[in-house]
């Protein structure tokens, strides 16, 4: 769309700017402030330079959490995105079942995150949970509170359960926006269903899928409450993702300096990766 240049448009943006800046810039400055200071309690602070950053960047613990975080994020993306597309393709396009499917599928999205953790906790408990009881009944030795492998499997199953619907909803929206004429043309040309998917459906879904991938990437990188309620980061440290580790340092040990430095590094990692995703996908689109 041709946009007209109008500097007064700033006035329209002003309320948003004020609110978001209040919430974003002041806390961010607080974090930056802590990250370069040393404190011995009693509100006495002294300049510490970049020691906290050095500490974080070289610490084994941070590397381990970051590694687990990356593994988690890429695993759930690799499962949720293809699965969401497959389900969206198989969904009915009209009739009463559309509403039924959409309403039921959207359910997990609106459950508070701690409840999601609680649901999966009681669902997977080895003896009293439905899943845990079933698996153990089948002779599989399953206990997510003791065995790291089981904890990971449960964590990933929970996230797939929780968020695949977002990808489905977005992909479905992309699919219904394709005019019927495209399919008729493809039929006349005798296109296979793979060809229809590859050359009609996938390009039309590209925009919504970009949004889905970006949202899932950002949110899974920020995930805190669900794994905290489900496993508490355990057994041991095996499912301690970045934000769980951060909260342990910041609110548990009250190490403000290291926690602040870690926050900034964490935020920058997300920002950088999101920016790379965003530019890569937008560049494709412009071509």
């Amino acid at each position: 769309m041709n946009k007209t240049v109008n500097q007064k448009a700033w006035l329209f943006v002003l309320p948003v700017l004020v609110l978001v800046a209040f919430n974003a810039i002041i806390p961010l400055m607080t974090v930056v402030n802590y990250s370069v200071q040393e404190t011995f309690g009693n509100n006495v602070f002294s300049w510490a330079g970049i020691i906290w950053f050095e500490e974080v960047l070289t610490s084994q613990r941070f590397h381990a959490s970051l590694g687990r975080q990356l593994f988690f994020t890429f695993t759930i993306l690799a499962i949720e995105v293809p699965l969401g597309v497959i389900i969206a393709l198989a969904m009915p396009r009209k009739g009463i079942w559309v509403s039924v499917c959409l309403v039921l599928m959207a359910m997990p999205l609106l459950i508070p995150w701690n409840v999601v953790g609680a649901i999966w906790n009681i669902f997977a408990l080895p003896q009293i949970g439905m899943l845990g009881n079933l698996l153990n009944g089948m002779g599989i030795d399953y206990n997510f509170t003791r065995q790291p492998g089981d904890a990971w499997a449960t964590l990933i199953a929970m996230d797939v359960w929780h968020w695949t619907s977002l990808v489905v909803l977005l992909a479905y929206a992309g699919l219904v926006s394709i005019p019927e004429a495209y399919y008729q043309a493809a039929k006349i040309d005798g296109a296979s269903s793979w060809a229809i998917f590859r050359y009609i459906q996938l390009p039309k879904m590209k925009r919504v899928l970009t949004i889905a991938i970006l949202l899932r990437f950002m949110d899974s990188f920020n995930i805190y409450t669900e794994p905290f309620v489900l496993t508490g980061g355990g057994p041991g440290n095996s499912t301690t993702l970045l934000s769980i580790d951060l909260v342990k340092v910041a609110l548990g040990q009250f190490d403000l300096g290291p926690a602040a430095a870690m926050s900034l590094v964490y935020f920058l990692v997300i920002l950088l990766l999101s920016w790379v995703f965003y530019t890569l996908m937008m560049r494709d689109e412009e071509q």
């Binding site: 919430n23 974003a24 806390p27 974090v31 990188f221 920020n222 403000l256």
Partner: peptide, 17 residues
């Protein structure tokens, strides 16, 4: 970018603010 900010990062400064 504010959509990307982890809530865990902002918890303590928000409390103070």
């Amino acid at each position: 970018t504010n959509r990307m900010a982890p809530a865990a990062v902002f918890a303590l400064p928000f409390f103070q603010l």
